[in-house]
Simulated assay, not measured.
Amino acid sequence: MGDTLSKPVTDKHTSTFETTHLNVGCCGMQGWRKSMEDAHVAQLNLEGDRTQALFGVFDGHNGHLVAKYAGAHIVDTLVSTHAYGDKAYDAAFVETFEKLDSTLDANQELRNEGGCTAVSVLLTASQVICANAGDSRAVLCRNGTALPLSSDHKPSLAAEIARIEKAGGCVQNNRVNGTLALSRAIGDFEFKENTELPWDQQMITALPDITINEIGSGDSFIVLACDGVWDVLSNQQCCDAIKDGLQQTQGDVGLVCEMVLDRCLAKEAPGIGCDNMTIIIVVLKPAFFGSSTSS
């Protein structure tokens, strides 16, 4: 890659949060890239509910400003929707992604600043709701097994190709119009200029896929990360690394985040492991279930 440094920036920006119900670690590392374009959000005690929280990872491309904007505004945008108040969380996420996208489109200072993936997890007392647009990813560790909460949106997928071509684009070398290596994102408005089609049918769309899973006592943690992590580790490898790390560190979730990023960092560039990396680990504590969890 032409945008790699001679040596990686391995400084990590780590934060941890803990309530009676959750233990959360967040970590970002620039790595071999010349700039850091990721953003993330971790909002606990959402709307005053200690079992409700929102987490998100936003992987920027062609700049960091869209990712920063999405991370800064997703919580307020989500909770302000009528669907959220009605607990129609799937509809609330769709409306939220559309609002973030349309607001950026109307912002002359930001609309030409690239785009970002967005994977978000809303945690309630009984459910984990995931909304994803792009190739960042969320995974739930259930009884030690990785359960994917999202699917990557790549231009090579048949359904994505059909939408891209209908909107007037093409897929070349697994990239939209030969340039963008993902098929859904917030921003990237140069791919959203077909005035005959609605927002969710553009070449690049911000429309998220939504999954809803009931939470049980066998669920131990949720991990969200950008593709810089998933390019190196499979879902199961990542869950195994986190599980082992939590045991080794006696539950130091921030340190475990750093351990995962160190494991994913390439020893030399270019190649896999040279991207920006951001990870959030959400450990569900026994009090979350009202009884002990199994790992």
Results as ranks from 00 to 15, higher is better:
residue 175 R to A: 10
residue 201 Q to N: 09
residue 73 H to G: 05
residue 28 G to M: 01
residue 266 A to M: 00
residue 2 G to K: 05
residue 112 N to Q: 14
residue 170 C to E: 13
residue 144 G to T: 09
residue 91 A to L: 14
residue 181 A to G: 07
residue 220 S to C: 06
residue 65 L to A: 15
residue 276 N to F: 06
residue 125 A to V: 02
residue 36 M to E: 12
residue 180 L to C: 01
residue 218 G to L: 03
residue 203 M to W: 06
residue 256 V to G: 02
residue 158 A to F: 12
residue 154 K to D: 07
residue 91 A to V: 13
residue 106 A to S: 15
residue 147 L to E: 10
residue 245 G to H: 07
residue 221 F to Y: 12
residue 30 Q to P: 00
residue 291 S to E: 15
residue 274 C to G: 07
residue 146 A to I: 09
residue 207 L to P: 01
residue 219 D to R: 00
residue 221 F to S: 04
residue 279 I to F: 06
residue 224 L to E: 09
residue 277 M to L: 03
residue 293 T to H: 15
residue 63 G to D: 11
residue 82 H to K: 15
residue 29 M to L: 02
residue 32 W to S: 09
residue 68 K to L: 05
residue 32 W to K: 02
residue 190 E to Q: 12
residue 84 Y to F: 15
residue 204 I to K: 00
residue 31 G to H: 01
residue 116 C to T: 15
residue 32 W to L: 02
residue 4 T to C: 13
residue 114 G to D: 08
residue 137 R to G: 03
residue 49 D to A: 10
residue 22 L to G: 08
residue 256 V to I: 05
residue 18 E to Q: 15
residue 17 F to W: 10
residue 165 E to K: 14
residue 186 I to N: 09
residue 265 L to I: 02
residue 196 E to F: 10
residue 114 G to N: 07
residue 166 K to A: 15
residue 285 K to E: 13
residue 176 V to R: 04
residue 129 I to D: 07
residue 285 K to Y: 11
residue 28 G to I: 00
residue 121 V to E: 03
residue 284 L to Y: 11
residue 263 R to M: 05
residue 192 K to L: 02
residue 129 I to W: 12
residue 37 E to V: 11
residue 99 K to L: 04
residue 131 A to D: 03
residue 69 Y to D: 14
residue 43 Q to L: 00
residue 238 C to P: 01
residue 119 V to D: 05
residue 31 G to S: 03
residue 260 V to P: 09
residue 31 G to Y: 05
residue 89 Y to N: 08
residue 258 E to N: 11
residue 258 E to W: 06
residue 219 D to N: 02
residue 96 T to N: 06
residue 4 T to P: 01
residue 255 L to S: 12
residue 161 I to K: 15
residue 195 T to R: 13
residue 23 N to P: 01
residue 85 G to E: 10
residue 123 L to N: 02
residue 106 A to K: 14
residue 21 H to R: 10
residue 34 K to L: 09
residue 225 A to Q: 03
residue 211 T to V: 04
residue 138 A to P: 06
residue 219 D to T: 04
